[in-house]
Design a protein around this nucleic acid. Structure first.
Lengths: 139, 139
DNA sequence: CTAGGTGTTCGAGCGCACTCTAAGTCAAGG
DNA sequence: CCTTGACTTAGAGTGCGCTCGAACACCTAG
């Protein structure tokens, strides 16, 4: 129904990447048409999109692979899949918290530069020593 | 005052990484003692910590390098450094938003698995068709 | 019927950020 | 004096996730 080029366009992956994902087992081995070309059903897009979410939340390919293999084993693996996703979610939550903490520091530093500009704009002659000193220490 | 081993312990980087960072210009060329060994002042820790924040918020080394070089050029580069940090902060903010959106989807999926377990626990015989169907589609 | 476009396989190559090996120097303790 | 351990350099190797090249097959439009 859909060859690799169209799937590439629709999924945002390159054809190279799609073949690579099939090769390592992230995507199921595709059906081939009479002349040996991969032929995809639109439903694969849902799976690719989900893989994209795992990837963009920082899951390494090895772990996506674990998930993909569990999925192929059918319903019996649901509990394990759930566990895998829960653990991943917790890592992502921790990561977000970390990013937010670092953002605070970043903003503080940016404010420091903003203050420095203020001093230059409002004052061509004497520099206010205490602020300068604070800035130098922050650097 | 502090040799590379101690700096490694205190900064969390390995000695390998410290030399590598010096080599590429992320860390200033260290002073050497009489026998040619690197000798660090504790103040380097502040800089390394800041580099760590940039790194853990996803800044590539190339860009940290730009920042490091600007810093070495002194006060004149403050406006540009500020701009660099502001742009980076905006990327991090966007990234956090993205992660949070993906977390919502992840949680929804986890809930789906939890529902499936519920159905199994509370019901050995008949499976509620509509829920199953929804789950299958979600997969 | 032929040119262009899209597909195929296999294996090599790349960019990033380290990480380690080898061979050697040096200072301090037993 | 000699060993131990931390250091030095240059350069090779690693792991991840693609990305591409070469050589060839196939379908479609002009």
């Amino acid at each position: 129904m859909m060859k690799i080029g169209e799937l590439a366009r629709r999924s945002g992956l390159t054809a190279y990447t799609i073949r690579y994902y099939e090769q390592i087992g992230l995507l199921p081995v595709a059906d081939k048409d009479a002349s040996g070309q991969r032929d995809y059903d639109a439903s694969i897009l849902t799976w690719i999109e989900f893989l994209g979410r795992l990837k963009s939340t920082g899951m390494p390919i090895r772990e996506m692979l674990r998930y993909a293999r569990l999925r192929q084993q059918g319903e019996a693996s649901e509990a394990e899949r759930r566990l895998l996703l829960e653990r991943h979610r917790d890592k992502v939550l921790a990561n977000v918290a970390d990013l937010q903490a670092n953002l605070l520091v970043l903003d503080a530093k940016i404010s420091g530069y903003a203050d420095a500009e203020q001093r230059i704009e409002t004052n061509g002659q004497q520099q206010r020593k205490p602020l300068r000193a604070r800035h130098a220490r922050t650097l």
